[in-house]
Nucleic acid binder design. Structure first.
Length: 571
RNA sequence: GCCCUUGUAGUUCAAUGGAUAGAACGAGGCUCUUCUAAGGCCUUGAUGUAGGUUCGAUUCCUACCAAGGGCACCA
């Protein structure tokens, strides 16, 4: 439609012998201003020395004359010289029909068609509790992956985990001190929780107790050397238990990874690359091998890649990881990494180093960063202790949804499933509704209040629409486009924009456009629902309203999917 | 000190250089003999400061102020 209107404008301008290189056509923010709007008159009025409004009137008149298609109902001049297009009833009904035909491929686009993209996200560390920040990275990463998939990309999902390092030694120290935590009788989730507690114990001891600190450093050496049978046993068990617990979490969150990269495996790769390029790119400084990035870009700074003791730092491992990814997916077009923004600067340094070694990778790396997740009220942390783990946050959210569902006459299994899905929706939506860069203040109470701007509101709207469709089926009212209502509903004016929103989200790697759109459309649907009886045998347009409801369920279901949220059919 | 990110209603967030800056929560008032009231309808309130570019700036540029993060052997 956009193209057609643009062409129409071009023709009109040509007839008036006005030359314009670029025509801007947009959706007015306010639906009262029509469905499309152009500012050409404002943009060119000055050049040709005419009053913008009179010029707009002239163009509009020509547009009306040229408009033979019945898609445009009217053209109007408004404001200081905007030309607004109002689409016809017929356009909207045809669009609903199209959505019904598209089914689950609704909103797809092809801007990443044929592109192979790897997205790395979540990155929790074995032996450590999953932090709320990991949940945040996961939500953003999964959503970006799905949006890119919907835009034609071939996506692989990667997870990078720190399986060695001081944090592991701290956890093992804790496990050795408090052997109860080594209990293997419970589920792997329970075991992982104990290991997380052991980590907290070890981390505290490391801070406050000199002897413990030395002991932990000893353990760390033994972990690297793998020469202590007892520590090896604990390590192997702990690694497995925490990794399995992560899998359970990913399952609830709706993520399935294709590749797992382990930090231990990247150390040698990174060290070899640094050594091979020392002299030209890396140089010695105080016994360490460093990369002086500021020589190549004054906004970057020097970072150590190999310590004076010969150990590769995180930077070297990250370099190794990047290379390993390109080896794993040889024809990769883009490698995306998602982390918190505290890592933004050194990732730029690593990327610079890599692009000097492999110039062909320079434009194939993208680092997307997000802010911190902070809790608005101290309510949760005071109740559960100081550390708020990702699991606790998720579990508490799900629990509160459960309470809300207790009066439903479903069996327990159904209730639990819905509670889980809606809980995840609450958490994910509150992360994805705002642009990725900034911090998120997670207000526990608000997110589970389920009113207004929330994940459960979206899920509820979908469930409600579904229940209407069930009723329609029972009454044998099938979607039809024979009889159209007189009124064009607000929701119709939003439904056809879905694919544009997905396209924008994909090109900017920003899920929040989809999230905001879904709220808008859910609100429009609920308003439609409140003001109309949809299933009504006495209304000849009822079948059309049912069709409209179907279209809404398709859009919201697919839109929620792009956010990594499952839409329950009832709640 | 230098480099990133961010400053919008009381609060949490929106707004591809456009029209009267949108929602939600909060507060107040209506609304279930009608398909899910986790809903709908109505009322209330904001662009950190000072310049600049532009027909037109929340958006772009400069300075300042404020918050968060980063800046050598931790990850």
């Amino acid at each position: 439609m956009e193209k057609e209107i643009k062409n129409l404008i071009k023709d009109a301008l040509q007839n008036l012998t006005i030359e314009v290189s670029d025509i801007v056509l947009e959706h007015p923010e306010d639906l009262k201003h029509g469905d499309y709007s152009t500012n050409v008159a404002l943009a060119i009025a000055k050049n040709i020395g005419e009053n913008p409004k009179t010029l707009a009137e002239k163009i509009a008149k020509e547009l009306e004359r040229l408009n033979v298609d019945n898609n445009i109902e009217k053209v109007e001049v408004a404001g200081s010289g905007f030309i607004n297009f109002y689409l016809s009833r017929k356009f909207f009904s045809r669009n609903i029909e199209e959505i019904l035909n598209q089914g689950n491929s609704v909103g797809k686009n092809e801007i990443f068609s044929g592109k192979k993209i790897m997205v790395e996200y979540t990155d929790p560390n074995p032996f450590k509790p999953v932090h709320i920040g990991h949940i945040m990275t996961n939500a953003i990463g999964e959503s970006i992956a799905r949006i890119l998939e919907h835009s034609g990309a071939e996506i692989s999902r990667a997870n990078y985990q720190g399986d060695i390092g001081l944090h592991v030694a701290k956890a093992i120290y804790g496990l050795l001190k408090d052997t109860k935590l080594q209990d293997k009788s419970g589920s792997h989730n329970l075991q992982a929780t104990n290991i997380g507690a052991a980590y907290v114990l070890g981390a505290e001891a490391y801070e406050n107790d000199e002897n413990a600190k030395k002991e932990i450093e000893e353990i760390n050496k033994k972990i690297y050397a793998r020469d202590d049978k007892k520590i090896n046993e604990i390590y192997d068990w702990g690694f497995k238990a925490t990794m399995e617990a992560f899998e359970d979490l990913y399952k609830i969150l709706g993520t399935k990874f294709d590749y797992y990269f382990l930090e231990s495996a990247m150390a040698d790769i990174g060290r070899d690359v640094v050594n091979a390029n020392t002299g030209e790119i890396f140089e010695e400084s105080d016994g360490a091998l460093v990369f002086k990035a500021e020589k190549h870009n004054p906004k970057l700074h020097t970072r150590v890649f190999i310590t004076s003791k010969g150990l590769p730092t995180y930077e070297a491992k990250e370099l190794g990881l990047a290379l390993e990814k390109f080896k794993t997916e040889p024809n990769m077009d883009l490698s995306i990494v998602i982390t918190a923004n505290e890592q933004a600067d050194y990732m730029r340094v690593v990327a610079k180093a890599l692009s000097l070694i492999h110039p062909e990778y320079e434009n194939k790396m993208l680092h997307i960063t997000h802010g911190m997740m902070r809790l608005a009220s101290g309510k949760m942390s005071s109740r559960k202790g100081n550390v708020v783990t990702g699991e606790a946050l998720l579990r508490d959210t799900i629990e509160l949804v459960s309470e809300r569902l207790k009066d439903r006459e479903w069996n327990e299994e159904e209730k639990n499933k819905v509670a889980e899905v809606v809980g995840v929706a609450a958490l994910k939506y509150s992360i994805l509704k705002q642009s990725t860069g900034g911090d998120i203040i997670y207000d526990f109470d608000k997110s589970i209040s389920f009113e207004g701007d929330s994940g459960p509101y979206l899920a509820y709207s979908h469930a409600r629409a579904n229940s209407i469709l069930e009723k329609a089926q029972k009454e044998n009212i099938l979607p039809s486009f024979e009889v159209l209502p007189d009124e064009t509903f607000e929701i119709e004016k939003l439904l056809y924009k879905f694919s544009e929103v997905v396209l924008r989200s994909a090109s900017e790697y920003e899920p929040h456009y989809v999230a905001n759109y879904l709220i808008e459309i859910a609100r429009a649907f609920n308003s439609f629902y409140g003001n109309n009886v949809i299933v009504n045998k006495d209304d000849p347009a009822s079948a059309y309203k049912v069709a409209l409801t179907y279209a809404f369920t398709f859009i919201i279901k697919n839109g929620l999917h792009l956010l990594g949220i499952t839409a329950p059919t009832k709640m």
